[in-house]
Nucleic acid binder design. Structure first.
Length: 999
RNA sequence: GGUCCCGUAGCUCAAUUGGCUAGAGCAAUCGCCUUACACGCGAUAGGUUAACGGUUCGAGCCCGUUCGGGACCACCA
């Protein structure tokens, strides 16, 4: 007898490293473009190097790994590109915090190079931790292709991308109001701003109207002065007011036309202008603005985006009263003579931060009796997604990508339907990715392959799953604004633009323009470099050029990810083979930040999609529906789960809960021993793995038995020698394969997990393994049964491997040892493989209708007997004596499977057939159209209760079905097979009711 | 303010285009250490599918209204 090789107890901490070692030693995650098979590729959403991975990452990567392993087993040339993201602002912020906490120093206490080195060290540490975590989770990434958004190849891609966009006129520099984060002192993109509800106030400030010729008067005179009252939530910005606006429809507008007001504190004389942006006051309005409004709007172009637009319409001066840290300052765009009018009251405000200044300004108005009132007001205010301080609209020079500008090098004309977005703009292309414009012929669908890439048939080929997120994607692009790509950080790709005072006359060769682009603005000359050349940069510095100090938005480099990971801008074989990638798995929060940018870039640079499918998975929440976060302390660390339950268990649980829902709640508990956060949800995965382990031990014991090893190979083919259970389990397996495949194709990970679980536990363990116990002990049948058992076990391992790779791989080796030759030709093909990871995924073989009809009836008989035993409180060890009245047709299978019924219901079958009469003193039940009699089982009360209950059920059903059939429109309109089905069921129910003697 | 989604057993989630008695897991109840597995086995109970109305032979699913929850976008008077 051969040993089973499997230890008695399942221990993931020995299984998982053993499997992992083989995969890595044998380089089984690696793929080359020239390998056989159709391409299948995934690029990892690069985790930020800010911190170790959390449970959301575990979910994200488990789902990707399932796809990668599945496709690898399908024989696709599968490559999963791993890497990490430098996450500019986020990483710089955590390092700044750490440096401050450890040494009390600030970023500005170091040189740029010194500080970047510190961030680099952080990145090295976390990149390693993240990679280790992914490996422990079993992620089959091609580690030779590990990338980082700021490493050399990626830097090259960024340079090239910037240059080409720049040269095409799609990158421009502009003075705009940006979302300024005064804490981190950088601009943020619109989608990096989070709105938060704030309990604020409306302040009503009175501005005196100055009469003609009275402008020189510095102080208001108390007598006869008229005022306009403005309402504002931000009184401190009044220092920068350059107008007061009124709606031209306002009845008061005519009388005030051409009038001016003196801005208190500052003494600036500013006009009253008319603009229909101003909301008319209406205390009864639904709109809170109209309720609170006075009809007069202070206009502060430098500190409010809407005011900025009003300012542009009316040519108003823009006066910036804040420093970059949002303290009152006269040095950032405030003319000295204007400031000087203010006097001491104004000077006193200098240096105050915006909140102190707010109090001071309000206090001033109060003391001057110019404060009319203060009303509480709840409104939402933009906050930095990083530092969480309120965003300051701030006027500054930034770099932008034009998203709706026509791209001249692209021939398409027209606009995307329902919008005015040009087809040949970045946003236009992104929109065309999910819906065809019809302006180009869309050729036949090619899921992957060269043809799809060579032609322009990507329109409408970007599929977002679940589909509802397509609307989010499209709505975003329909309302897109230009993308601010510069960030005032040190950690990131430096903007490859140099500038110098004055206008330069270029004396260069023609090919110089291949790698250089220039423009002039504001008396400066700007030069964009395509390639990184230290020599050239050195000489530029010597000539007095300065490089732009800013870095690019993180999403600029992650937007290039599907290109840059494959070696773009070189036309590499990787790129030809694997771009477009097949699937992108990500969270809904970055559909706009990331997915959109990848689509725009890939289409712009390569004229093809970055990926065909985007799967948006659920967000994991804690038991109370809150996001998991460090500050709440409700996060679950994947490594803790791997240690307590195993990586397979974690992956199974994550897959099983991956429905197409928006969120998934996962109750969080403290582990009693380790005091670490965990969730009982993972027990299910662990239990399942344990089940697989033990079922395999049982199988291996039997496969290694003497009887089983004396099998004959032809029995594998000769189905006539199979038992009903054999035919049934093979059929069930093939059905499970079909279901699982369909589930995976639709990204229904929950359905895939459930299919595996139900088949393995429900069909295989609960029924088949129990049913074959006698056969495995019978030398005549052991060989044949072993063949089916080995094949179904192998097939199950293949089926489940993508989800629970470690345990299946490990067990597979033992199976290879104990029974090297497996498979049931024509029924369950299992091409041999040394390792499971690259064994063939099972193809769905034929199902057996007859077996799947008869076997469940036997199950029903057994279940009924078990139920009777329980109800009549029969001792578990007592064997009951049973007779069954069944039609000739079903008596055969019952007799043939007598052994199984007796074993599973712990009974002896006495008589079976159509003429069987109920023995005296017997309990009686009806199931599967047979009558079952259990001898010497008398409990009148129990039987009475049982019958009454059943009769009630039946009479309800019968009434419902009769009613349905009596309804003519049902029998006429409903599909015939459903009507027939109802008739059959009714007949059956009536028969059973009659037998039970229901009244 | 605009858009999208959700409300199903005590909890977490299912239910292919409307069609068998609305299903699982966990928790609960009863009985079992049966020789692979107590991380297990067998059995049981638990639902007016948020509410109301409509369409339909038939509604958890489609339509409308209301209530409750979430997400995305826009919005600092």
């Amino acid at each position: 007898m051969m040993s089973t090789d499997l230890p008695k107890a399942y221990d993931p901490s020995t299984v998982e490293p053993a499997a992992d070692k083989v995969w890595l030693d044998e380089n089984l995650f690696h793929a080359e473009p020239g390998d056989p098979g159709p391409p299948y590729s995934i690029v990892i959403p690069p985790p930020n190097v800010t911190a170790a991975l959390h449970l959301g990452h575990a979910l994200n990567n488990a789902l990707q790994d399932i796809l990668a392993r599945w496709h690898r087993m399908l024989g696709d040339n599968t490559c999963w590109f791993p890497g990490t993201d430098h996450a500019g602002i986020a990483t710089q912020t955590v390092v700044e915090k750490r440096v401050l906490a450890e040494g009390g120093k600030r970023r500005t206490d170091f040189s740029r190079d010194e500080f970047v080195k510190k961030i680099q060290a952080w990145k090295d540490e976390y990149e390693k931790r993240i990679t280790d975590q992914l490996k422990r989770m079993g992620c089959s990434c091609d580690w030779e292709r590990q990338a980082f958004t700021m490493d050399e190849p990626r830097a090259k891609a960024v340079r090239e991308a910037f240059f080409r966009l720049f040269n095409d006129g799609l990158i421009y520099r502009g003075k705009r109001l940006v979302n300024w984060d005064p804490a981190t002192q950088t601009a943020l993109a619109d989608d990096e701003v989070e709105m938060e509800e704030i309990d604020g106030h409306f302040y009503y400030l009175k501005y005196p109207i100055v009469e003609e010729g009275d402008e020189a008067t510095k102080r208001r005179s108390d007598e006869g002065v008229k005022y306009v009252t403005v309402a504002t939530t931000r009184p401190e910005t009044m220092l920068g007011d350059t107008a007061v606006a009124i709606n031209p429809k306002d009845p008061r507008a005519g009388a005030l036309r051409g009038k001016k007001v003196r801005l208190p504190i500052v003494n600036r004389i500013i006009p009253i202008i008319e603009d229909d942006y101003v909301v008319l006051p209406d205390p009864n309005s639904q709109d809170p603005k109209a309720q609170f409004a006075t009809g007069f709007l202070k206009v502060t172009p430098a500190h409010d985006p809407n005011d900025y637009e009003i300012g542009r319409r009316h040519n108003l001066p823009v006066i910036n009263v804040f420093s970059p840290t949002a303290t009152i300052s006269k040095d950032h765009g405030w003319a000295a003579e204007d400031f000087a009018q203010g006097g001491d009251d104004l000077r006193n405000l200098l240096g105050m931060d915006r909140f102190e200044a707010r109090r001071a300004v309000v206090e001033w108005f109060r003391s001057e009796k110019l404060l009319e009132e203060i009303k509480p007001y709840k409104h939402s205010v933009g906050h930095s997604y990083r530092s969480h301080v309120p965003i300051e609209p701030y006027l500054s020079d930034q770099w932008y990508v034009a998203t709706t500008k026509q791209i001249e090098s692209m021939p398409e004309t027209g606009t995307v339907s329902v919008t005015n977005i040009p087809n040949n703009s970045l946003a236009g292309m992104a929109l065309r990715a999910t819906r065809s414009t019809g302006i180009l012929p869309v050729s036949s669908t090619k899921e992957h392959g060269q043809d799809a890439r060579a032609t322009k048939d990507w329109e409408g080929k970007l599929k977002i799953v679940p589909e509802r997120y397509t609307k989010t994607y499209e709505a975003w692009h329909e309302n897109i604004r230009d993308w601010c790509i510069s960030r005032q950080l040190w950690w990131g790709h430096r903007i490859p633009v140099w500038s110098i005072e004055g206008l330069i006359v270029w004396d260069v060769t023609a090919d110089w323009h291949e790698n250089h682009a220039t423009f002039e603005a504001g008396g400066r000359t700007y030069l964009c470099l395509r390639q990184f050349d230290p020599e050239e940069e050195k000489s530029l510095i010597e000539e007095g050029w300065e490089q732009d100090p800013d870095v690019l938005d993180t999403w600029f480099s992650s937007g290039l990810w599907p290109l840059s990971t494959m070696g773009w801008p070189e036309e590499t074989r990787n790129l030809q083979k694997w771009n477009p990638t097949n699937a992108l798995c990500t969270d809904r929060s970055i559909i706009t930040l990331w997915v959109s940018r990848m689509v725009m870039f890939n289409l712009y640079f390569k004229n093809r999609l970055p990926f065909y499918d985007t799967f948006i998975h659920a967000t994991i929440l804690d038991g109370e529906g809150r996001k998991m976060s460090k500050s709440l302390g409700n996060g679950v660390d994947p490594i803790d789960i791997i240690e307590s339950h195993g990586a397979d268990a974690m992956r199974f649980t994550l897959a099983a809960m991956s429905t197409h829902t928006q969120d998934f709640r996962m109750p969080v508990e403290k582990d009693a021993k380790t005091r670490k956060n965990t969730s009982p949800k993972f027990d299910n995965g662990r239990n399942f793995c344990n089940k697989i382990w033990n079922a395999t031990r049982f199988a291996l014991m039997n496969l290694g038995s003497d009887g089983a090893t004396e099998r004959r190979s032809d029995e594998r083919v000769d189905e006539s020698k199979w038992s009903l259970a054999d035919r049934w389990i093979v059929s069930r397996f093939n059905r499970a394969v079909a279901d699982a495949t369909q589930a995976l194709q639709g990204y229904r990970y929950d359905a895939y997990a459930k299919t595996c679980y139900d088949f393995f536990w429900g069909d295989l363990c609960d029924w088949y393994l129990e049913a074959i116990k006698p056969a495995m002990k019978d030398p005549k049948r052991a060989g044949q049964t072993a063949n089916v058992l080995a094949a179904v076990l192998d097939g199950s391992l293949r089926l489940m491997h993508p989800m629970i790779p470690f345990i299946t791989e490990y067990i597979y080796w033992s199976l290879n040892e104990v029974q090297p030759q497996r498979g049931l030709p024509g029924k369950l093909e299992l091409p041999a493989s040394k390792r499971l990871i690259n064994a063939r995924f099972p193809a769905a073989g034929p199902v057996s209708d007859s077996a799947e009809q008869i076997f469940p009836r036997l199950q029903e008989v057994i279940n009924t007997l078990r139920n009777l035993r329980n109800q009549y409180k029969v001792e578990p060890k007592k064997t009951i004596s049973v007779s069954i009245m069944a039609s000739d047709e079903f008596a055969g299978p019952l007799v043939e499977n007598k052994e199984m019924i007796e074993l599973l219901a712990n009974c002896t079958l006495q008589r079976i057939g159509p003429g069987v009469q109920p023995p005296a003193d017997s309990a009686r039940a009806i199931a599967a159209s047979v009558e079952i009699y259990v001898e010497d089982l008398v409990d009148k009360a129990a039987e009475e209760q049982r019958n009454t209950k059943r009769c009630e059920e039946l009479s309800k059903q019968i009434a419902a079905m009769r009613g349905r059939l009596a309804n003519e429109s049902y029998s006429k309109k409903a599909p015939p097979h459903l009507v027939q089905q109802t008739r059959d069921q009714l007949a059956e129910a009536e028969a059973e009711a009659a037998k039970l003697g229901c009244s």
